[in-house]
Simulated scan of single mutants.
Amino acid sequence: MSGSNSSAPGSGAVPDSPLNFSVHSLPSPDLADGQRRTAAGRLRMLLVLAVCAAPVIASYVTYFVIRPEGRTNYSELITPGRPIPAELGLRTLGGEPVAAAALRDQWLIVVVGDAACDKTCEDHLYLQRQIREALGREKERVDKLWLVTDAGTPRPEVMRAISIGTPAAVLRVSRERLSAWLAPAQGQALAQHIYLVDPMGLWMMRVPPNPDAAKLKRDIEKLLRASASWDQPGRPAR
């Protein structure tokens, strides 16, 4: 019996002919689909943030835009509120870094000034203390903050004054970084105002220069009433 033929019968193939291979490219990723997914994720995140902020916005609108019973605010409402920058560069007077998030969870009455603390600065710090004390049982929802905008050392007599009762927090920050968050009215300097910041870290009111104590107290009382439904007890008063 003769040896077998390796070619299939009737194939007509030439045994020594080379084999041909077709090379097909792999399908490329769908970049457009990935971009759509990213955009959808960002939209969902924004919707969640909007839902969380809705009670806050509604309370401010009720008290300071709709103005029920003809009431008006003395301080200037900042809309939209400006969130505290994560990279504000806060430090203690001793130079230790402080996270911006540490300023959240309490209402803040903010005074701005350099370490020398001129008469305007002293007046603001005194008013800050007096108004907080005048809030009665609601004062525990409010903290006092002095932002020092230079590298100087505050005078001992000023530090003693702001330590009476519940001490004010004192932090150092550069004017340049602070200007990304707080801003004066046109024609005014940053230190001419007192600033009100809500527990979410939003700067939302700017007090006029040479503030009227009674009118400012009324503004803060309205803020505390407006936020009563969502403002939870925050960090302990210092």
Score class of each variant (00 low, 15 high):
R36Y: 01
G152H: 13
A50M: 13
K217S: 04
M205F: 14
G81D: 04
A183Y: 03
Q232E: 11
C52N: 10
A39W: 03
P55S: 06
P83C: 03
R155P: 04
V110K: 01
V207H: 06
P184D: 07
W203S: 08
E140N: 11
Y74N: 10
A99F: 08
D114L: 02
A185D: 07
L145Q: 06
A8Q: 12
G3C: 01
S229F: 13
P211F: 05
M204D: 03
R71G: 05
G10S: 12
R238W: 07
S163T: 00
T153D: 15
R177Y: 06
P233N: 04
R91D: 11
V148G: 02
L49M: 12
R218A: 14
Q130R: 14
H124Y: 03
H193C: 02
A213N: 01
A213K: 13
D198Q: 06
V158Q: 06
P154G: 09
E87D: 15
L49H: 10
V173K: 05
T166D: 10
K215T: 01
D212E: 15
R225V: 08
R225P: 00
I78A: 11
E221Q: 15
R206N: 00
T149S: 09
D219T: 03
R175P: 03
E140Q: 13
L88A: 12
A226L: 01
R175M: 08
Q106G: 02
T62C: 11
M200W: 14
W203K: 05
R141G: 03
G89R: 12
H193T: 01
C121W: 06
H193N: 07
M204G: 01
E69S: 10
K215H: 07
G187M: 06
Y126W: 09
A169M: 13
K222E: 08
R160E: 15
G113F: 05
E76M: 12
A115S: 15
E133N: 07
Q192A: 15
L135F: 03
V65A: 14
K222I: 00
V148R: 11
G81F: 07
F21A: 08
L145V: 11
A86T: 14
V56C: 10
Y195E: 02
G81S: 09
S227G: 09
Y195M: 02
A86Q: 12
R225I: 05
S227A: 12
Y74L: 07
L31Q: 12
E96V: 09
I164E: 11
R129S: 06
A40G: 01
L93A: 04
W146A: 03
P80V: 09
I66Q: 12
A183P: 00
L19N: 04
G113P: 03
R42H: 12
R67K: 13
F64V: 07
L49K: 14
A185Q: 05
I194D: 00
A58G: 10
P154R: 12
E157S: 11
Y60E: 14
E69T: 09
S6I: 13
V197A: 00
N73C: 15
T120L: 03
L108M: 07
L26V: 06
E176P: 00
